[in-house]
Amino acid sequence: MSVASGVRFGEWEVVVGLEVHTQLLTKTKLFCRCENRFGASPNTLVCPVCLGHPGTLPVLNGEAVRLGVRAGLAAGCRVSPVSVFERKHYFYPDLPKGYQISQYATPLLTGGGLRIRTGAGERTIRIHRMHLEEDAGKNLHAGIPDRSHVDLNRAGVPLL
């Protein structure tokens, strides 16, 4: 989610954009049916799909789409009738497939805004877009001299 606003500072206007990752409260991950749960012991919420094994295919979680659309309707977004997932590529140990499935050109939701109360009265924070994507896993560095450890429980958790 990215949000923009404007405040005048003498002859300058400050424009602040925020990129917000919100975990969706689904029971399972975005593209496989491993549990979406925090705090489990390492690599206990993983399967061939979220481990990026060969031969596996993503299957989209309908509940994640429903929750995304619901958030979008509450914020007055336009819900796109056609919504496309794309692959964002980089190599990193916490990214099992070598790409993150995200949305780029055609996100699920565009426009809308959030009304907030401030000291200066009510303001509207405009929303540029909201899209669905999968989270990466977790790398741990503490306490090991020349090695890093990887826990993939979080890999594939749905983010809005």
């Binding site: 990026g52 094994h53 060969p54 590529h89 140990p93 099992p96 497939k97 070598g98 790409y99 990887v150």
Partner: peptide, 12 residues
């Protein structure tokens, strides 16, 4: 090129 990026020697 995209499908084969998962072969990285990390997990198997």
């Amino acid at each position: 090129s995209s499908n084969l990026s998962r072969f990285d020697g990390v997990r198997y």
